[in-house]
Design a protein around this nucleic acid. Structure first.
Lengths: 225, 225
DNA sequence: AACAATCTAGAGTATATACTCTAACTCATA
DNA sequence: TATGAGTTAGAGTATATACTCTAGATTGTT
């Protein structure tokens, strides 16, 4: 009788949490534009009235999902290791980020529309991006200190971080629109092929001593097409 | 009394062309999701019936706009110079592409949704992208032959072209969502700051002999923030 | 002038969707 | 057991929007 697919957890969740999870699932699967509040309620087997008891409107649902997304990515990017970074660390960062991107993959799709209709989200997302760019910069710095990347100027680092961010956040859209794959056939593994692109970006700045290693690890993510 | 802002041209245009132009303007300005067919008709001072005499549905309007966009970009990218490429040529290519991107800036915003609801567009856009990537690759090849870029393997060239494409097509979205600027304050010049990012991408592959020149030209597009 | 093809007006419709309202149920605690 | 806060059901509403239908206007051709 459990109308949602979140298995064991759902028994311990309250309605509000269930709504958020179901919405995320449906948004990811069908695109937010195609998912109505009535759909969400029906999917959970609850009434629209119940849904609107917990959320004033649809935008509020999206906002709460954003807060979770933000927390996740912040956590991934800010996690300090307490030691010198390794090449493996760097791939782990990328894996983590693409993992988060996958779990909330609906978000970047109609982002502009959300920001237009919710000032909280607009401000929140703006500082979120800046924070991410900062984090990427400091990771780059630590990679330089660990002699993995060649030293760069602060400016070049920022430009590089931005390019990496652009590639990461647009990779999903590229797969869905330009690549041959059918929209529903994109799997988490396919998404992670974006790692290949990002690593390619930094290849010219990798120190000779670890270049072979980086290139070997990079091959694992090589896009199949 | 002229309801559209296309000046002189409009007098010689038939209704169908007027609808396309007005739609493009309104889509660019307000986002396609916020522009209804009734809005378009009202904006032109024609009846909805008239609009639907010329277009079976809204998707058809978008499709025709795509065809124009496609023609424009194809033309920009495939234009051969008949001589060896120069550094200036390369910046001209970038200028042209960003120009096209600006004129049809609504398009990439809800692209996924369009492709979902129009198979023609899906197939058309997919081959359009592949064609663009091919064109970029051949431009890169010619830049190598002109000793502007260091020689690369076919594979590396493809990867590089894809990264460039990702940055180009996502720059507008970045400006609207993450950068401090207000959505309506983005001008064509701001968009062209994306050129800075793309050129930064290729900097490691630029031959010493022209490096200074490239860097000097690049400075003109440096993002203000 | 007569006719047909093309074009246009504008009221109208079917449907979707975000959201509301009230009554009723649950359940812990006094 | 009574009370009351918190929660839920479900019918219902207001509005938007893509699109239709028919009657009439315009235009070009013989």
């Amino acid at each position: 009788m459990a109308p949602q697919e979140h298995g064991d957890k759902s028994k311990q969740m309250n309605t509000k949490e269930k709504i958020i999870l179901a919405s995320l699932d449906l948004f990811n699967e069908n695109g937010e534009r195609n998912v109505t509040t009535n759909h969400i309620a029906a999917h959970l087997g609850i009434s629209p009235g119940n849904l609107y008891y917990h959320f004033r409107n649809k935008t509020d649902i999206i906002y709460e999902i954003f807060l979770q997304y933000q927390m996740l990515v912040d956590h991934y990017l800010q996690a300090p290791t307490g030691r010198q970074l390794t090449v493996e660390d760097q791939f782990a960062y990328l894996e983590a980020v693409f993992d988060g991107l996958w779990s909330y993959r609906f978000f970047h799709r109609e982002l502009e529309h959300y920001l237009e209709s919710d000032p909280r989200l607009r401000d929140g997302y703006q500082s979120f991006t800046q924070r991410c760019l900062e984090s990427i910069c400091s990771i780059l710095e630590r990679l330089e200190k660990a002699s993995i990347l060649k030293p760069q100027s602060e400016d070049d680092r920022r430009t590089f971080a931005l390019n990496a961010w652009l590639i990461v956040t647009s990779w999903m859209s590229y797969l869905k629109t330009a690549a041959g794959s059918d929209a529903h056939l994109i799997r988490k593994e396919t998404l992670k092929q974006g790692i290949y692109q990002v690593v390619s970006l930094e290849l010219p700045f990798v120190n000779e001593s670890v270049l072979d290693k980086v290139q070997r690890l990079r091959q694992a993510y090589r896009p199949s097409i």
